[in-house]
Design a protein around this nucleic acid. Structure first.
Lengths: 251, 251
DNA sequence: GCCAGATTAAATGTCAGACATTAAAATGCC
DNA sequence: GGCATTTTAATGTCTGACATTTAATCTGGC
């Protein structure tokens, strides 16, 4: 394993980078055991705490896992789709919330990606996927549902659409786009009428997928996107109006 | 900040999770300074090395940055699109290489996502994007280019297509899909004839985008996908044949 | 000979205290 | 007032020790 020259960065960051390169480059393969912390400390000529900090960095990225006990140690971790999902959702959510990404931009990206899944999903969706979508549509029609529950159901519905494409890579890629939108969607207050409209559009999508009609699925998704953006826009203008009224009152 | 009950997990993992929740939940905002390591150690009733391990976990995810000196400390980091790109590329690459994702599945996902960008890119691509694409097409036509260089140019070309959509969220999402494919693409040996065919298809795509013709862009991408998969398939069958011949020889 | 329980060994997890290094702020001199 | 110096508060690193976990080994009894 390579050593580190004198750099400005932390030793632990350099060591983590060196080990990461070995994993990404394929020199260290899945389930292979790394040298013990003491051996690594010896090799890199640093103390054990420094090595530990490096290993924790790698553990945070799910690149390694550690096991205690006699045959324990740090092992190269097989990165699983589920673990990657979680990281993606967190990262995407933070990107949206920290970078002032507008609702329109996020919404456009989300529906563009979903439309990418539509043709495949129209071909491959199983009865299970359709059943999930129908169940969520039914839930969305129930009165007394909170806005948060409505949005959560919406996410489940769209996840079923995406998973229907039967491509794990696509599902992984879209997990972030769909779920990261949820906090933004939660800002919308769904009236009874708007819920009804969304349920109708969802029904259109489910029908189109059931009929394996890719073009109709695409069209319905486009309609849903337009309606979602319209709703968000009305929320923004309503708030602006309220703020202006308040300002007028105090002035 | 909340405390941790007696759990089976590492203290450093629990502390990292607690702080992460505060950041994701918005209690800690961008550029806000966390308490010093000593204060955190005091608060969580652990030692400073344990706190440091927790902070390194967060640093590995670009959630915080640290600064030395009198006014130093750990600060909530604004997650930048560029940082997120890198993480995404690494994660996506590892997912593909560690989970035996087939070329076909990865390829299908990649082109489905690119087609999602096509309509937007047809509208919004700037002269800069077109110039980049033309330049890469020219490079790809040069003789004496290594397969790796050809693939790298291919990535740049497709990145320009994606960026042409003018949606940062889309660009971020697709960085992983496009770049993670590169190692798989590198396994293909591009003959002079296949390079010529790809250059022609790339030219079709650039022409369609220049003409702002979304349908033609989509069609060209579909052709390119089919051709890419055909190439990969021939590599696989050629290898299988070679292996069989060798086996026959030794037997 | 074989099995159950006790022991051992090797690894990670945690702690305490110290020193090194950095960079900003306070201080003092002119 | 401006510049050099000192102070200070923070992270970065080291040493050494102890705690805990877990599998392998040893031991004793049947």
């Amino acid at each position: 394993m390579k050593i580190d020259p004198d750099s400005t960065k932390d030793l632990s960051a350099q060591i983590a980078e060196a080990i990461r390169a070995e994993i990404v480059g394929g020199q260290l393969i899945v389930d292979q055991r790394l040298p013990s912390e003491a051996e690594l400390a010896d090799h890199f000529e640093v103390s054990r705490p420094t090595v530990r900090e490096a290993l924790k960095r790698l553990a945070a990225q799910s690149l390694i896992r550690t096991q205690r006990g006699a045959t324990g140690g740090a092992f190269v971790n097989r990165l699983r789709f589920e673990d990657a999902y979680d990281q993606q959702v967190t990262t995407a959510s933070l990107l949206l919330s920290m970078n002032a990404v507008s609702f329109d931009v996020a919404c456009e990206a989300r529906y563009a990606l979903e439309r990418a899944c539509a043709p495949l999903s129209a071909i491959r969706r199983t009865p299970d996927h359709l059943a999930t979508m129908r169940a969520e549509i039914h839930r969305q029609g129930q009165p007394g549902l909170t806005d948060e529950a409505f949005c959560a159901s919406d996410v489940t519905f769209h996840r079923a659409l995406v998973d229907g494409a039967g491509n794990k890579v696509l599902s992984y890629q879209l997990a972030g786009a769909v779920e990261a939108m949820q906090p933004l969607m939660n800002m919308i207050t769904f009236t009874a009428r708007s819920r009804e409209a969304i349920v109708d559009l969802h029904t259109d999508i489910a029908d189109a997928l059931e009929a394996q009609d890719a073009a109709k699925t695409d069209a319905s998704l486009t309609k849903l996107e337009a309606y979602t953006r319209e709703l968000a826009h009305s929320v923004v203008t309503a708030r602006a109006a309220a703020a202006k009224a308040k300002e007028h009152k105090t002035a």
